[in-house]
Design a protein around this nucleic acid. Structure first.
Lengths: 170, 170
DNA sequence: TCTGGATAATTCGCACACGAAGTATTCGCG
DNA sequence: CGCGAATACTTCGTGTGCGAATTATCCAGA
């Protein structure tokens, strides 16, 4: 798995990882802070913006978009429903599906929000020159492609290993 | 805050943000998965590796390194202590300070771990050519610098705004 | 020396976040 | 048709993760 790295390369890789973590956590922190001023949490702000943009969404598609498990989103929606921001509407065509809909209160709140989730990222990225933007996108794209390939590969191997593992304290 | 972006630029910025989020969450997920096989959680794996690398660390310095609040780390250490992986040692020179130390069991476990936290990132980044690595580092560095400046700026303004806000449901 | 402010940890309450197990419903296929 | 697999969501238990309040300790300056 871990290719041998020269010391110099290792330092650079470290710095890159550090920076990515920094950018991610910091922009999350700032989003959360913005949400706070509206009496919302970070994920709640994201959900409201998504619903405003796309209209009603099933719980599953919401989960996909915010990259979380259904069980997590169930909880988020529970709390938002309790606050009167959204309502659950059972689909008539497929009674397993629940659509999440903004209430009037939720829609009003959504309209009053000018900040995008990850807004800080946007602002900072917009300050890059064209060339840097292109390069960054290109390189990150490469990385993503490789990670995807790697994950796929692991998933293919995983199930076989599954039996070898069986760790667990007896 | 949000500079006007051309549509084309907006798409690219979106893609960059998407990718950064993807890389971060995916590598976290994979680290967590690796930890699982050892009966650990993600943060616990990170803590064990840090303690192995740096020796005993105060709870505060541990918090800094894993970018979390003291209160969070207190909980992580509580559970690790319960599992017999680490112990708390009150400093004699400053009795407010608590050092976290690997137990024999913890040290053994640490030795048996070959994966680095964020190992997948490393593997993938190591696959980039020199030029791409340099470019990526340079551009991310720029971004980080700007975010830092922005955060600082906000912090400077924040306290003044503090009174204007006072939202809160009555 | 004594006291007020800073610092290190902890406690508490809340909100994610995940995975496993459970429920309801739909769908595919014989 | 009917039944077993798949899908959508919920529930439950555990582990972060944060911020405010608390406790214990240190330290600088009157």
């Amino acid at each position: 798995m871990s290719l041998p790295l020269s010391d110099e390369a290792k330092v650079e890789v470290d710095a890159i990882v550090e920076t990515i973590i920094y950018l991610y956590t910091e922009s999350r922190r700032l989003t959360k802070q913005a949400a706070r001023e509206l009496g919302l949490t970070g994920p709640q702000l994201t959900v409201i913006k998504l619903l405003e943009t796309f209209g009603d969404l099933s719980l599953s598609s919401l989960s996909e978009r915010i990259r979380a498990q259904n069980s997590t989103v169930t909880g988020i929606i529970d709390r938002m429903e309790r606050e009167g921001l959204v309502s659950r509407e059972r689909s008539t065509s497929d009674r397993r599906v629940v659509y999440i809909r903004l209430t009037t209160k939720g829609a009003q709140l959504a309209k009053s929000i000018e900040v995008e989730p990850m807004e800080i990222m946007y602002g900072v990225l917009a300050g890059l020159n064209r060339e840097d933007t292109r390069d960054l996108l290109r390189i990150l794209g490469k990385l993503q492609k490789r990670v995807r390939a790697l994950v796929k590969e692991r998933e293919a191997l995983g199930p076989i290993d599954e039996k070898k593992k069986a760790v667990g304290e007896p």
